[in-house]
Computed example of a mutant assay.
Amino acid sequence: METNLPRTQMVLFDNSIIRLDYNPATDILEVEYPDLHDYLLSEIKRSIDTLLDTVRSYYVKRLLLDSTRTIISVGDEESREIATYLAAGLARTRVQKVARVQSPSTTVETTAQHSIRHIQEAQALPFQLQNFSSKTLAMEWLASNF
Rank of each mutant, 00 (worst) to 15 (best):
R92C: 10
T106I: 13
Q128D: 13
G75A: 07
T26G: 12
A87D: 11
R94W: 05
G89V: 05
L52M: 08
P34R: 06
H118R: 04
R94M: 13
V95D: 00
V101S: 01
N15A: 09
Q130V: 00
N131F: 13
T110F: 08
E121F: 01
S79F: 04
Y39N: 14
Q120G: 01
S115P: 00
S134E: 04
T26M: 07
K135D: 03
Q123V: 15
D14Q: 11
R46I: 06
A91G: 14
L40V: 10
S103I: 02
L64C: 15
E81W: 08
E77T: 11
T110S: 10
D49H: 10
P126I: 01
R19Y: 04
I82C: 08
G75S: 09
A91S: 15
S42H: 09
L86D: 02
V98Q: 01
T107L: 10
L65W: 01
Y85E: 04
Q120M: 14
L129D: 02
D21K: 09
A88P: 03
S16T: 09
Y39S: 14
D49C: 12
Q102P: 07
L63G: 00
L52N: 00
T107C: 01
V74H: 03
V60Y: 08
H37I: 12
R56Q: 15
F127Y: 15
A124F: 03
S47K: 08
K97A: 07
D27N: 15
N15P: 11
D49L: 06
I48A: 01
V31G: 00
R62D: 02
R56Y: 09
Q96I: 02
T70S: 06
A87I: 06
D35T: 04
K97C: 08
D38E: 15
Y39R: 11
I72G: 01
S47H: 06
G89P: 10
I82F: 05
R69F: 11
L20A: 09
D53F: 06
H37D: 15
A91K: 03
T70M: 09
E81I: 06
Q102N: 11
D53K: 11
T110G: 06
E78W: 00
